[in-house]
């Protein structure tokens, strides 16, 4: 009797792991993918930190002298700062009495008195900053973090929007087919027959500058690749048995499209989302560099590079390095993560 009671319980039916569980397991085994994931997560944290004002809050403050040297090369001469300093003390101009002909002469005394009333506090400016300063003496590292916030935000939101547009249109076209499909194919053909760069520039010519505009432009011109892939997936799935079964129990078209099929093609969307973030970050940097991207009062990696171009000629390389290294780091990590995701989510591999 007792033997029956103590016998181990019969193993229950184990739920077989789904695509996402399997993918996560595969991703965890992929060392490069995990490192890339950590780097990307770090940048996302930076972005959130800078957005909420926890870090790089004072990026716009002029804390150093003009083109402050990085602290590891404090000894290097800084002609620009020296020049600015001499300008402050005022160059000695030989005094010439112009009071006879100068119509403003009687007012000088009054102006001087009023100037004296205003107190100017000169903020102490550091000679060196951790990784140097820009023309206005702003900390390059803080600028790079703020720039990362702008660039990643634009890339991420634009990619989300493009994936949304591409998935909805691709799903409609692939699932519905017929007239709707033909119309959407025509729409797709119109967008792809214009060279991509030209399409972006045409949109940029019409709309005003701004972060929301550039997100819109990138998303509205960049959905075509996702549309193509999602459409192909939907065509494949629309005739499968599970969709027919859903139809048999009375599921509506919308329900079949987005509740039944979408989870089965979502891995395609995720990989596309990831690769479009990379593509859009690069595009944003170039557009901002050309002055077609973010507005003047905000900073992105592109505007930093635009400043760096002229700085390089006078030997101030740190802004160029800060912007390009931080961008390269993120983009490399993101591309590797995309590759790992693609491998991990490939349903053919078990």
């Amino acid at each position: 009797m007792s033997a029956v009671l103590t016998s181990p319980p019969t193993p229950r039916h184990q739920a077989s792991p789904g695509l996402w569980t399997l993918a996560w397991r595969r991703l965890k085994r992929d060392k490069i993918g995990m490192v890339a994931l950590v780097v990307v997560a770090f940048f996302l944290l930076l972005m959130i930190g800078s957005y909420t004002g926890l870090i790089a809050k004072n990026w716009a403050k002029e804390v150093g002298v003009s083109y402050a040297n990085p602290s590891f090369m404090a000894g290097a001469e800084n002609l620009e700062a020296a020049q600015a300093a001499t300008k402050d003390t005022g160059a000695k101009v030989p005094f010439v009495d112009l009071s006879d002909i100068d119509p403003l002469a009687p007012k000088y005394a009054e102006w001087e008195k009023r100037t004296a009333e205003i107190k100017i506090t000169d903020t102490p400016r550091a000679d060196t900053l951790l990784f140097g300063g820009d023309k206005w003496g702003r900390d390059v590292i803080q600028k790079a973090i703020k720039g990362a916030e702008t660039s990643i935000f634009v890339g991420l939101v634009a990619a989300l929007l493009a994936t949304f547009i591409g998935t909805v249109l691709g799903g409609l076209s692939g699932y519905m087919g017929g007239k709707t499909g033909d119309f959407l194919e025509w729409f797709y053909n119109v967008f792809t027959s214009i060279p991509y760069i030209l399409l972006i520039l045409a949109f940029a010519a019409v709309f005003k500058r701004g972060i929301d505009t550039i997100i819109f432009i990138l998303a509205f011109t960049g959905w075509t690749g996702i549309y193509r892939l999602v459409r192909a997936e939907y065509i494949k799935h629309a005739s499968r048995e599970y969709v027919k079964a859903a139809q048999a129990i009375g599921a509506t078209h919308t329900r079949r499209m987005f509740v039944h099929i979408l989870p089965n093609v979502s891995h395609v969307c995720l990989v596309q989302l990831s690769s479009h973030v990379v593509q859009f970050i690069k595009a944003e940097v170039i557009l901002s560099f050309l002055g077609l991207g973010v507005p003047v009062d905000s900073v992105s990696w592109g505007t930093m590079l635009a400043e760096a171009q002229s700085e390089l000629v006078i030997g101030k390389w740190w802004q160029l390095v800060a912007a390009s290294v931080s961008m390269a780091l993120l983009v490399t990590a993101f591309s590797m993560l995309t590759d790992s995701l693609r491998d991990a989510l490939d349903p053919k591999i078990k």
Binding site: V278, K282, V285, I286, F289, W301, G302, L305, A308, Q309, L312, V313, L320, S324, M327, A328, L329, L330, V331, T332, S335, M336
Partner: peptide, 22 residues
């Protein structure tokens, strides 16, 4: 290749123009 692709085209142009040209 992956690293080279992640650096912006702008950086290549700026640096090459500076060194080879200037």
């Amino acid at each position: 290749c992956t690293v080279a692709m992640s650096i912006s085209f702008l950086v290549y142009i700026i640096v090459a123009q500076y060194y080879f040209g200037f």
